[in-house]
Every structure is written in C-alpha cells, then in structure tokens.
C-alpha cells in the first residue's frame, strides 16, 4: 500500500458510505493525473513528489468534509425556532429547579451544613438538568433538520400572512388586570395592617370563652412605616402604569427597583425573630398543651416558606423585565407622560 492508497483510505473513513467508492476512485484518478504531470522533467524521487502533492491537496478530513452536504447540526432555517424553544425549556427547567430548592430549604433552613449540602445538590441538579434539556432539544432539532419535517417548516414560511401579526400580543402593553389586582390588594393590605392587624389571629373557644391569639407581634408592627412606604409607592406606580398602558425602559427599570426593594423588605421582616405571636409558650399559657409544639412548629416554618416563594416570584419577574428591557430593539429613549 503506497502513500496515495493510504491517503485515499483515510479520506474514505470520513465519507458517506454510499458515495465512498465513487469519490475514492475520482480522487485517485485526479491524484495520479497530477503526479504524472509533475513527474515530467523532475529529478525528485516519487515519494517526495507524492508527499508534496498530498500536502497541497489537503488533509483527508478536510477533503472528506467538502463532500458532505450537512455540515451543520441545525441549519439556518430551523435555528431561530430552536433558539426560542431552547429559551422556553431552559427557563422552565430553571424555574422548576428553583421551586424544588424552595421546598428543600423549608426543611433545612438558611444556615448550617444541611443548607450548604442542599445548595450543592440543587446546583449540581440544575446544571445537569440544563445540559440534558439542551442535548435533548438539539437532538430533536437535528432529526427534524434531516427529515421531511423541515419541508413543513418551509411551507409555513411560504404561506406566512402578515395579517397574522394582528393576533400577536404587544410585549410593551401592560397586563391591565394584573396591575389593577396589585392596586386593590395593596390598598386592602395597607388598610388591614394599619387598622385591623388583629385579623391575622387564631381564635378558638376555651372554657366557654372566645380566645384570640394575634399571629403578628409588636415586633412585626414595628416595620409598619416601611410597609406603608412600599405600599404607597406600589399604589402610585401601579396607578401610573394603568394610566400609561404601556411599558417604557424607564418604567421597567422602576418596576424592577420596586420589586427588588419589596423583596428585600419582606426578607428583612420575615427573618426577624419573634414576628409571630403563636409560640409553644403562648399556647401552653392558655392551657393548650396538646399539639402546641406541632402547631407552633408549623407556624414558625411559614416565614421561610414565604421568603422562598417571594424570592422565586421576584426573581422570575425581574428576569422577565430584564429580558423585555433588552430584547425590544426599537424603543423610545424618553418617557411620554400622558
């Protein structure tokens, strides 16, 4: 087997099986033609000429690659759809993973080795989940790319009707019911916290008398001025947005700041010890010994659960706002007050 045979065999390894023999024969024929021409009037030995010729012709892998029609996994036709699907699925995987983390943190708390271990496990799981999701989606799109499904895609592209844009939601339009609901609940919350804080209490009949244990203590109510400031800001902001009807970069940034500030305040309050009035002692003092521990344990785990939910919900909201903020290409650089 001479060097040309070895070269052709090496190219053949990377060629599609169906065309291999034919392409190999053609490369051989060309190489021999070229060699014959170069031999004329040359004093160099055959081996040196062949080495020079093959070097010029190209590496076997490179030559084989030029015969392949599919040089990509997912082509330009399907790539935008692939990107969209990938974004959605990765966001869902990350969201589900965060919710899972929230549940495990209600068991471990926010400090200590159990917390560290839960965080480690969560992070490993998240990375693994994201990689698996990416791999599966890439595989599905690679299959679509190589099958008839791609023709269906082309058909849809050809039959595309600009009128269909009318049914597309405008990403800059505000979600009106969401803002109105926030307004109503913020007003309600402020009224209750300021005027009727005892609404949050446990009531029961003991020895023929109604007994009330307030759930929120004076420690909690100590934060009331801050809650009021946040609440009023929310009312002003949501009222403004309901009037504006449309997101602008400035209002998106304001919204993000309000969400983050609200989250920080909530976390500070909920991490303060003694904000909940139902303790084993307060229950025992009232003669409730049965299930006192169990009841107070359930109530004391509520802040951690609420913190987790608040952090997750705020994170999702803030990420969505950031995506909208940077994804919108043509936007007005100023705020029009209507």
């Amino acid at each position: 087997m001479n060097l040309i045979d070895k070269y052709i065999a090496e190219v053949g390894k990377h060629l599609p099986r169906r065309q291999r023999a034919d392409i190999e024969a053609e490369i051989r024929s060309t190489l021999e033609d070229m060699l014959e021409e170069r031999k004329q009037g040359q004093t160099q030995d055959d081996e040196a000429l062949i080495v020079e010729l093959l070097k010029e012709y190209g590496s076997p892998r490179e030559i084989a690659a030029t015969y392949k029609t599919h040089q990509y996994l997912i082509g330009p036709r399907l790539f935008p759809t692939f990107e969209t699907v990938l974004r959605i699925v990765l966001a869902v995987v990350a969201g589900a993973s965060l919710i899972g983390l929230g549940f495990s943190l209600t068991k471990t708390g926010w400090t200590g080795p159990e917390f560290a271990s839960a965080m480690g496990q969560w992070f490993g799981g998240l990375i693994g989940g994201l990689i698996a999701a990416f791999g599966n989606i890439a595989l599905i799109f690679a299959i679509i790319e190589r099958t008839q499904a791609a023709n269906q895609f082309e058909k849809e592209v050809k039959e595309w009707d600009p009128k269909a844009l009318n049914s597309e939601p405008d990403p800059d339009r505000i979600d009106l019911p969401d803002h109105i609901a926030t307004l109503i609940f913020t007003v309600l919350g402020l009224v209750i916290f300021n005027l009727y804080p005892n609404v949050f209490s446990i009531r029961f009949v003991s020895d023929g008398m109604w007994v009330t244990i307030p759930i929120l203590t004076a420690t909690f109510l100590h934060y009331l001025p801050w809650i009021n400031i946040m609440g009023l800001l929310q009312i002003v902001f949501n009222g403004f947005m309901v009037r504006q009807q449309e997101w602008k970069p400035v209002t998106r940034i304001l919204g993000i700041l309000m969400d983050v500030a609200g989250m920080i305040l909530a976390v500070i309050i909920l991490r303060t010890p003694g904000i909940i009035g139902v303790t084993p002692e307060s229950l025992t003092a009232l003669g409730i010994t049965q299930a006192a521990d169990e009841l107070s344990r359930i109530l004391s785990s509520i802040p951690t659960l609420v913190i987790t939910v608040i952090v997750i919900v705020t994170a999702i909201k803030v990420i969505k706002s950031f995506i909208r903020l940077f994804a919108v290409k043509s936007r007005s650089p100023y705020l029009i007050v209507k």
């Binding site: 392409i23 053609e26 024929s29 012709y57 490179e62 015969y67």
Partner: peptide
Amino acid sequence: EYGYSLLKALSDKGLEVDQSTLYPLLR
C-alpha cells in the same frame, strides 16, 4: 472533460479553483 482537465481548462482561462472546491461542485 474529466475533473483534472477541467481544472486546467479553467486555470488556462484565468480562473484558479481548488480541487476540493471543484469536485464536490461537479457532484
């Protein structure tokens, strides 16, 4: 024309093409 002779015909008219470009194009 066969591949190599076509390569030379193109080259004689001033169009230099690589074998690695021409053969896949012919196919």
